[in-house]
Design a protein around this nucleic acid. Sequence first.
DNA 1: TAGTGGTCTAGACCACGGC
DNA 2: CCGTGGTCTAGACCACTAC
Lengths: 256, 256
Amino acid sequence: MPLPLHRGNGLPLYQQIQQRLADQIQAGVFKPSEPLPSIQKIAAQMGVSQMTVRQAIKSLCEIGMLYSRQGKGTFISGIKLEKEFRHVLSFSEEARAHGATPHSRLLSFSIQKPSEETRAALALADGDRVFRLHRVRYEDSLPISIECSCLAVSACPDLMEIFDPDTSLYERLADHYGIQLAITEEVIEVGKANMEEARLLQVPRQSPVFLFTRVSFREDGRPVEHVKSTYRGDRYKIVNRLMRTRRSVLGASHIL
Amino acid sequence: MPLPLHRGNGLPLYQQIQQRLADQIQAGVFKPSEPLPSIQKIAAQMGVSQMTVRQAIKSLCEIGMLYSRQGKGTFISGIKLEKEFRHVLSFSEEARAHGATPHSRLLSFSIQKPSEETRAALALADGDRVFRLHRVRYEDSLPISIECSCLAVSACPDLMEIFDPDTSLYERLADHYGIQLAITEEVIEVGKANMEEARLLQVPRQSPVFLFTRVSFREDGRPVEHVKSTYRGDRYKIVNRLMRTRRSVLGASHIL
DNA sequence: TAGTGGTCTAGACCACGGC
DNA sequence: CCGTGGTCTAGACCACTAC
C-alpha cells in the first residue's frame, strides 16, 4: 500500500492514479494478460469515485498499456512502451528524443513570392509574401536532411530579426507570436538524391531519400508552415505505432 | 431544433450527441474558430447531463474537430477531416479505402524455420515453425508491393487449408482463430529495387522503394505477424496526421 | 446470480479568462 | 464579478461474461 493521493494540490486525482497504475505495471506488480483489480475495488481502496478511476484507466487504454472487456475486466497489455506514437515534433525535439544534438546550417533566408503549392497550402491571398528558410539539419555533426520551410510574412512579421539558427523555430513561434502548432499533415514519398542534395547530405548521387511534405496547423485549423524536406535514407528511418481504428464520425457523403 | 435523442435503444447518448455535433459542424452550422454553445447550454437544451455532453466533446477534440480552452469555451477547428489518421489496416482495407480493388498473387506459401529476426519479433521458442506467405499485391491490376508475412504455426495450425488468396488474411485470422489485431509497430526505410523486386513490381532496377517492417500484436501484446514489404516508390505514398503530444506516462528510467 | 465494465445523472467545487 | 471548461462525487441502471 503506497503513498496516499494528494487532494487539492496541483495534479488531478485521475492523473495521480494513472501514474501510479503505470508505475505498478512497469514495475511488474501486474503481469501481461492478468486482470487489474476491478474499478470498484480500486475506487474503494483509493477512496475515490469510480468515475475518477475510469478516467485514469481510459487514458492508459488509449496508449495501449491496458485493455478493457465489458463483463470480464481490465487487463495488462504486454506491448513494449518504449516505442511511442509519432507526434508533431520539431527537428530539434526529434533529434533530442533519440539522444542526439541537433543543429542546422542556414543556406538562405529570404522573403519571396510563394510557389503555387505553398500558396494553396497556406491559404494565402494573391500578393502575400512568405519567409523561405532553407537549411541543412544535422544530428551530432552528421547531415540528416535538407529542409525548406515557408511561413506567411503576415503571421510573423519580424521573424528575420528574432530568428536564431540554433534555436527551434517552433519555440520562437510560440514565444514571440503565441503560435502553437497542434496538427501536422504529412505526405511521405521516396526519391533519389540529385547532385546538390547528394553534396549537402554527403551521400552518393542517386541515393534513395525520403521526401516529406508537411503542413502544420494551429488548433483552429489555420495553416502556419509549409515544409518540403529531403532526408537521407541511410541514416533516417521512421518508427510508427498504429492502432486499430474506431468507427469514423464522418458522413457517407465524404466517402469517395 | 432537430430530432430528439433516442434513449435506451442501441446507441449510447454521448455517441448520438457526438454524431449530431459532427453533422452540424460539417453542415456549416458553426464556422471555424467560432465557439460552440457552452457545455451547460448543450446539456440543458438536449436534456442530458453535462458529463454526457463532455464525453461527446472529448471524442471530437481527440480527432481534431474541436478544441477546448478552460475559461473560454469550445471552438470549431478548421482542419479538413478528409485526411484521416493512419491505423492498423490490411492491404485490402487500405486499397479499398482509396477506391481501388485489391488482389494478390501468391509466390509461395510454406512452413519454415523462422529467421532470427522473425524468431525475436514473434517471441518464438527454439524449434517453433512459421508459415511464410510470399505475395505480390495489386491495386486494380497494378503491382504495388511485395510482401512476406510470417505467422507462428502454433497460432493458426490449419491456416494452409483455410487460406484463400483473395480474402484478407486478417479476416481469416479473426474468423477462424478469434485473433484480433490491435496494434502494429512499423519501421519504414527506403531502398532500391533489386532485380527480382524490379521485375515483380514492373519498375526499373534501382528504383527507389519503401521498405516496411511491421509487427502486429493482439490487445494483450502477444505478437501475431511479422511482415517485411517492398512498396514501389512511384505509386505509393504515405499520408499521415500527427498531433501534438501529451506528456508521457513513462518514468525517467526509460528515457535514454 | 454475481461480478464486471459502460453509460448516465444531478449535483459540487475548482481553475481560468475576460470584464 | 460571471461564465467557461476541468475535476470529482455517490450513487443508479444497463450490457455482458462466467458460473
